[in-house]
Computed example of a mutant assay.
Amino acid sequence: MRFLVVMIISCLSLLGCKETPQQVPEKTLPLQVGAANYDAYIPALKGKRVGLVVNQTSEINGQHLVDLLLDRGVKVSKIFAPEHGFRGDHDAGAHVKSTVDAKTGIDVVSIYGSNKKPTPEVLADLDVIIFDIQDVGVRFYTYISSMHYMMEAAAENDKSFIVLDRPNPNIAYVDGPTLDPQFRSFVGMHEIPVLHGMTVAELAQMIKGEGWINNADKLNLTVVPVANYERTMSYELPVKPSPNLPNAQSIQLYPSLCFFEATPITIGRGTDFPFQVVGYSPIKLGEFSFTPRAIEGASMNPKFKEIEVFGQDLRDTDIHGLDLSLFISAYQKLTANNQEFFERAGFMDKLAGTDKLRLAIEAGQTEQQIKQSWQADLSTFKRKRAPYLLYQ
């Protein structure tokens, strides 16, 4: 792996720890995702029975990894479908069914819902499992939870595990509370901050190295890095990673707005700009108005369905990292008007990975005070993750 720049890590402000280079050299080579480095993994698949953990983002130059491997004579025996399904067309939280892929006839096994970890019987006809899914670098985005369970299943059943790495569009930020193990759930499985600043391959190495899965020492793990990638590179995803993260702005705002999911406030599900607005009714959070409706990605009952709400349009804002200002302001406005804010307090604590964030907001602490409280844990985490980083 050729490294183009040596990085220094510094905490720029209490608004988040961002990794910054001393100098940025001229870029001369194109970025290449792990899946495009065919020589690094396809020869090892010869004569093997392969299972794929993939979705709609698993493309290389417009071709899906399933089709690419089949074209090269690889025996793909099973496809494992995470949240949002193999094609990425299921709503958040919607049940993902096991089925058969109509195009290839390959069995598609759901790993979202009640069957998060495949049984030994399901894995019996496999030799190798490949993970190739685009992540967004946020702890509560569940693709990394699915990777965790698949890694554990591979370790327990003596299957090789390969991670084809992809860039993290939020890699510049390490911020937020570190998970308290007593709040572990599918939206937070690892003792990492909300924004961890790692790619999926780096995180896979950490999961194995820290023994966060059963039989971690027995797992035969291979990672294929992104070529010509630097930690300060911006990266706009060629395929939206889930129905409600349609563009770079929504992905940038996602860490800050997802906490609103535990409140009565809408963040735009059921609109053409999800995770790019906030709104409420009858209290106004701003002058921008919109009306959620049942559409693809929010086909059931989005908050305030067919009801006009008022709030803020964030499509042109420069909010990045983990920003709590909107969240605290909304809390203050609703509670001042005798409206319940943390209507799903348990879910809020699972998203945050702790109850300390919710309790601090309820106690009236400022954003600066709250962020200061987790700086020591962030420093500890960055030291712990250092041996697993691929892009220095």
Results as ranks from 00 to 15, higher is better:
1 M>V: 13
10 S>C: 08
15 L>Y: 15
15 L>S: 12
16 G>R: 09
22 Q>L: 15
23 Q>W: 14
27 K>N: 06
30 P>C: 09
32 Q>F: 06
33 V>C: 09
35 A>L: 02
36 A>S: 10
39 D>N: 15
41 Y>D: 04
41 Y>C: 04
49 R>A: 12
59 E>I: 03
61 N>P: 04
66 V>L: 01
66 V>P: 03
68 L>K: 10
78 K>H: 10
79 I>W: 12
83 E>T: 03
84 H>C: 01
94 A>K: 10
97 K>H: 14
99 T>G: 04
100 V>R: 11
112 Y>I: 00
115 N>L: 10
115 N>W: 06
124 A>E: 13
126 L>G: 05
130 I>A: 03
144 I>S: 12
150 M>Q: 08
153 A>P: 10
155 A>Q: 07
157 N>M: 01
159 K>V: 01
163 V>E: 04
163 V>T: 09
173 Y>D: 08
173 Y>A: 05
176 G>Q: 11
184 R>S: 15
191 E>H: 14
191 E>I: 10
192 I>M: 08
201 A>L: 04
202 E>Q: 04
204 A>Q: 01
205 Q>S: 09
205 Q>G: 09
206 M>E: 07
209 G>H: 02
211 G>W: 02
223 V>G: 08
226 V>T: 01
228 N>V: 00
230 E>V: 12
232 T>N: 09
233 M>T: 02
233 M>K: 11
238 P>V: 01
247 N>K: 05
248 A>T: 11
249 Q>G: 03
256 S>G: 13
259 F>T: 13
259 F>P: 14
262 A>Q: 06
266 T>Y: 07
266 T>R: 04
268 G>Q: 04
278 V>F: 14
282 P>N: 01
284 K>N: 14
286 G>L: 05
288 F>G: 08
289 S>C: 13
290 F>Y: 07
293 R>D: 11
296 E>T: 02
298 A>F: 00
299 S>V: 03
299 S>R: 15
305 K>R: 13
306 E>R: 11
308 E>G: 02
309 V>T: 12
310 F>L: 06
315 R>F: 02
318 D>L: 08
321 G>L: 01
332 Q>E: 15
332 Q>Y: 13
332 Q>W: 07
336 A>D: 15
338 N>Y: 13
351 L>V: 15
360 A>P: 00
362 E>M: 14
364 G>Q: 14
371 K>Q: 12
373 S>K: 09
373 S>D: 14
374 W>G: 08
377 D>S: 13
377 D>K: 14
378 L>P: 13
378 L>Y: 05
380 T>N: 12
380 T>E: 09
384 K>S: 10
384 K>T: 12
386 A>Q: 12
389 L>Q: 12
